[in-house]
Simulated assay, not measured.
Amino acid sequence: MTLTPQYYGTEIETDEVTVVVATRNRADRLIETFPHHRARTILVDNASDTPQPLFPGVDVVRLPANMGAAARNVGVQRARTPYVAFADDDSYWTPGSLARAAALMREHPRAALLAAKVLVGESGRVDPVSREMAASPLGTPVGAAGPSVLGFLACSIIVRRDAFLAAGGFEPRLFVYGEEALLAMDLAAAGHELSYVDELVVRHLPLPSGRDNGARARVETRNRVLTAMLRRPMPVVRRTLAGAWRENPGGARDALRQAGWAWRQRRALPPQVEEDLRRLS
Rank of each mutant, 00 (worst) to 15 (best):
9 G>E: 10
9 G>N: 06
18 T>D: 12
202 V>T: 07
281 S>Q: 14
247 E>A: 15
23 T>G: 03
228 A>G: 03
90 D>F: 02
38 R>I: 05
103 A>R: 02
4 T>L: 11
238 R>P: 13
2 T>R: 12
218 R>V: 12
5 P>G: 04
238 R>Y: 11
19 V>E: 05
191 G>A: 07
158 I>F: 03
114 L>F: 05
265 Q>H: 14
187 L>T: 07
23 T>H: 02
75 G>C: 03
228 A>P: 04
43 L>I: 09
128 P>D: 13
159 V>E: 14
236 V>D: 15
190 A>S: 11
261 W>N: 12
197 V>L: 08
248 N>D: 12
99 A>K: 14
172 P>C: 01
60 V>C: 11
77 Q>F: 11
28 D>F: 00
249 P>Q: 05
241 L>D: 07
233 P>W: 08
253 R>G: 01
113 L>R: 06
179 E>Y: 02
266 R>G: 05
230 L>H: 12
128 P>Q: 09
45 D>V: 00
231 R>W: 13
37 H>Q: 03
118 V>M: 12
87 A>H: 03
174 L>V: 10
280 L>D: 15
130 S>E: 02
28 D>W: 02
220 E>P: 00
7 Y>Q: 11
28 D>G: 00
99 A>D: 08
80 R>Q: 15
263 W>K: 13
109 P>L: 04
83 Y>E: 00
11 E>T: 15
79 A>K: 04
231 R>S: 09
30 L>G: 05
246 R>T: 14
22 A>E: 13
127 D>Q: 00
120 V>A: 06
196 Y>E: 08
269 L>W: 00
210 G>K: 12
216 R>W: 10
13 E>L: 09
201 V>I: 13
40 R>G: 05
4 T>S: 09
27 A>T: 02
61 V>I: 14
56 P>S: 07
87 A>R: 08
270 P>N: 02
195 S>W: 10
56 P>C: 08
39 A>D: 07
215 A>Y: 10
59 D>W: 08
248 N>G: 04
260 G>H: 09
199 E>T: 15
147 P>G: 02
30 L>I: 01
42 I>F: 00
243 G>V: 12
148 S>R: 13
109 P>C: 03
232 R>H: 07
101 A>H: 01
137 P>C: 09
69 A>S: 13
220 E>I: 13
245 W>T: 08
108 H>T: 01
112 A>W: 06
143 G>A: 06
69 A>D: 11
124 G>V: 09
147 P>I: 03
61 V>K: 12
8 Y>E: 04
90 D>S: 01
239 R>F: 01
175 F>K: 15
155 C>E: 15
177 Y>V: 10
8 Y>H: 05
242 A>D: 11
184 A>K: 01
23 T>R: 04
203 R>P: 14
69 A>K: 09
